[in-house]
Simulated assay, not measured.
Amino acid sequence: MYSQNDLDEAVASGALSADAATGLRNFVEQRSALPSVDEEHFRLISGFNDIFVSIAAAILLFAVAWIGQSIGQATNLQLGDNGPTPLAPAAVAATAWGLALFFTAKRRMALPSILLLLAFVGGVFTAAGFVLVVIIGEQTINNNHVLGGILGAAAGAVAALAAYIHWKRFHVPITVAAGGAAVAAIAIGLLVAAVGDVANMRNIILGFVLLLGIGMFLFAMRWDSSDPARVTRRSDVAFWLHLLAAPMIVHPVFSLLGLNDGNASIGEGLVVVVLYIALGITALAIDRRALLVSALAYVLFALQSMFRQFGAVELNIALTALVIGSALLLLSAFWHQARRMVVSPLPDGLRAKLPNLDRPILSENSATPLPAA
């Protein structure tokens, strides 16, 4: 079965004309009788071989990390007596890059590319952090929030550079989100270094993460607005950025409001429901479900607490699952109609920056697809 990105790549390479690709898209749309915008396509797997290769790559990376850890301990290059060593994440990052040269650059396999990208950037970030700790010394860093924040920011900077290099070489859509996470780590590290050890550091960090999440959301919308038809890789990049921004927005909001302290009252439960409805309207407007998924745990907890306080102790979990499950399925079934109700009243300028309500026809002036991954 051919994916949306396969058609984009075929058009970009000249194997298929734009008119032929448009005709195929229109045929599939008419046959399904559903607007393609409802599907929120993004490339994850193209076949079971993606899963097979991902499992094999994960096993290999685990083995490489184990060997690197053993070598680090044998050479006394480790943290503490039997702590982690920088060689393990460094070996993982190097192996992930080497595998990406084949499975990403040549085979263009989606799921293995995502796994290898995360292993590469995560390995670089961890290795950089461990190396800095080994050089400076654990005792110097203990209970030193300023130095710890600076080291965290430095490791984030190295990871951000690694993500940029990976993007320039492979153009995997999730790489931009990984780089965004690294930049967020830099900002949080610098904040911790600037604030130091204060009584309300937790709330300060949560508020700062909320601001970073809003910034990440706006950055994702910039990618989305550059491809309102969602026919290029820019849409995939925006998807992963929204997936990163959603928890950065949702968790601080509910945490700062005190709605995750383990005992929600009826009033707090109602606040959660109202916030979830607001998130749902936003998700409909931007045609992204990540916000709804990120806040799902909070609304489930709030509703089951409300049902328990109303006396439905034995069935509180079942009733919560029934209400939320039914609501989400109903919203999914009528997503396009609900989205039209939300988007249509908006000003023309704002509506033009949102994903199209209806599938447009691809023309020669359409945005050029980004290189495949």
Results as ranks from 00 to 15, higher is better:
321 A>W: 13
321 A>T: 09
321 A>H: 04
321 A>P: 00
321 A>C: 09
321 A>G: 08
321 A>M: 14
322 L>T: 14
322 L>Y: 07
322 L>I: 13
322 L>S: 15
323 V>R: 01
323 V>N: 02
324 I>N: 06
324 I>T: 02
324 I>A: 10
325 G>A: 11
325 G>D: 01
325 G>Y: 04
325 G>F: 06
325 G>I: 04
325 G>N: 10
326 S>T: 12
326 S>I: 14
326 S>V: 14
326 S>Y: 03
326 S>C: 04
326 S>K: 05
326 S>D: 03
326 S>N: 02
326 S>P: 01
326 S>W: 01
327 A>Q: 04
327 A>Y: 09
328 L>C: 02
328 L>A: 03
328 L>H: 07
328 L>W: 05
328 L>N: 02
329 L>E: 06
329 L>R: 08
329 L>P: 00
329 L>I: 12
329 L>S: 10
330 L>N: 06
330 L>G: 07
330 L>H: 04
330 L>M: 07
331 L>K: 01
331 L>W: 07
332 S>E: 15
332 S>L: 09
332 S>F: 08
333 A>R: 04
333 A>Y: 12
333 A>Q: 11
333 A>D: 08
334 F>N: 11
334 F>E: 04
334 F>L: 12
334 F>T: 09
335 W>A: 01
335 W>E: 02
335 W>R: 08
335 W>M: 03
335 W>G: 00
335 W>Q: 03
336 H>G: 10
336 H>F: 08
336 H>T: 14
336 H>P: 00
336 H>S: 15
336 H>Y: 11
337 Q>K: 09
337 Q>H: 11
337 Q>T: 10
337 Q>E: 13
337 Q>C: 00
337 Q>I: 08
337 Q>L: 09
339 R>S: 09
339 R>Y: 06
339 R>C: 01
339 R>F: 10
340 R>I: 01
340 R>L: 06
341 M>A: 09
342 V>H: 05
342 V>F: 08
342 V>A: 13
342 V>M: 05
342 V>N: 04
343 V>K: 02
343 V>A: 10
343 V>H: 03
343 V>C: 06
344 S>V: 11
344 S>R: 15
345 P>V: 03
345 P>W: 09
345 P>E: 12
346 L>G: 04
346 L>M: 11
346 L>F: 09
346 L>A: 07
346 L>W: 05
347 P>F: 10
347 P>N: 13
348 D>C: 00
348 D>A: 15
349 G>E: 10
349 G>T: 11
350 L>F: 11
350 L>Y: 03
350 L>K: 02
350 L>R: 02
350 L>M: 14
350 L>I: 13
351 R>P: 07
351 R>H: 08
351 R>N: 02
351 R>M: 05
351 R>V: 06
351 R>Q: 14
351 R>I: 03
351 R>K: 15
352 A>V: 05
352 A>H: 14
352 A>N: 12
352 A>R: 12
353 K>R: 15
353 K>E: 14
353 K>Y: 12
355 P>V: 06
355 P>D: 09
355 P>E: 06
355 P>I: 08
356 N>T: 12
356 N>W: 08
357 L>V: 10
357 L>G: 03
357 L>W: 02
358 D>Y: 14
358 D>S: 15
358 D>Q: 11
358 D>K: 07
358 D>M: 01
358 D>W: 07
358 D>A: 13
359 R>V: 03
359 R>E: 13
360 P>L: 13
360 P>S: 14
360 P>C: 08
360 P>D: 13
360 P>Y: 12
361 I>S: 11
361 I>W: 06
362 L>E: 10
362 L>W: 13
